[in-house]
């Protein structure tokens, strides 16, 4: 962390709730600030998403940050919903940045199992 770099207040969970409710879309200034912090940093080790089957299955990946070295798949972390993947990356970054585990209210799946998020409404 650079000196004077903006930090996230781990006690302020409103931006987390907002992101969980709408991972992609219009964000409040508070959530934008959190996202800008979480998305900063160098490319080495940065999370990405690897598509395993189009519109069906994705895996968590990490960029190498090294030219010519492809992203690695993080073993055992797969998704059947892209917004779930987006939330999982957010959660991992938020917890790493703040050194704080999110409380149980943020556990569990993002969407009810019947929700179709693969198509237009996304």
């Amino acid at each position: 962390m650079r000196a004077n770099a903006p930090r996230i207040d781990p006690a302020d969970l409103d931006p987390v709730r907002e992101f969980r409710a709408c991972p992609i879309g219009l964000h409040s200034p508070a959530l934008e600030a959190v996202l800008n912090i979480l998305r900063a940093g160098t490319m080495g080790g940065k999370y990405c998403i690897i598509c395993l089957e189009p519109h069906r299955k994705w895996a968590l990946g990490r960029l190498s940050g090294i030219r010519g070295v492809p992203p690695d798949v993080v073993p055992g972390v797969e998704y059947d919903d892209l917004e779930e993947a987006e939330w999982d990356v957010f959660r991992r970054r938020w917890e790493a940045e703040t050194g704080t585990r999110l409380p149980p209210e943020f556990d569990g799946p993002l969407h009810a199992p019947s929700t179709n998020t693969a198509g237009e409404s996304r």
Partner: peptide, 27 residues
């Protein structure tokens, strides 16, 4: 793959397919 700006340009985590992963290695 190369530039840190991508995620901020489109406000979500980049998704890479098999072709993107291949090209990342086979420069």
């Amino acid at each position: 793959i190369d530039a840190a700006l991508a995620e901020r340009v489109h406000d979500h985590v980049p998704v890479f397919g098999a072709s993107d992963v291949f090209l990342a290695e086979r420069r």
